[in-house]
Amino acid sequence: MEVGVERRGNARVIAVKGRIDHLNASAFHEQLTPHLQHCRSNGDGIVLDLSALDYISSAGLRIFMMAAKQARAQGGRIAVAQMQALVQEIFEISHFHLVYEIFTTTDEAVAALNRQPETAGT
């Protein structure tokens, strides 16, 4: 598992490569944590670029859940983009598609996160 980070406007694009399973989920969590602190209202949005993620187990998904919870609590936005077919199916079967905003491409996710959040009507 490898993690690469790139800033694009107000979005931090975190590319995750390889597999996340019970053996390296904690290491993944450690690498994600410093970025999560900045994922807040008026801070950075996070896009998890999963184009090179080959597999994710329940242990990895648990970290994804913790990240989503923390971002939400801080008023920040976090999304996933460009999932491989296998990872997308795992997201659906585990119901994580109900937890995360999912974008087909990283560009779309970055654009969405850089847009001002719409204010609620009425």
């Binding site: 329940s58 998904l61 648990r62 079967i93 585990s94 119901h95 994580f96 937890v99």
Partner: peptide
């Protein structure tokens, strides 16, 4: 539960998911 429920709203409720069973 579904895994998403088991690690969020139903965390510490003491049950598991099909995903973890398979793993």
């Amino acid at each position: 539960y579904s895994l998403a429920d088991a690690v969020s709203v139903k965390e510490d409720w003491g049950h598991s998911s099909n995903i973890i069973g398979v793993e």
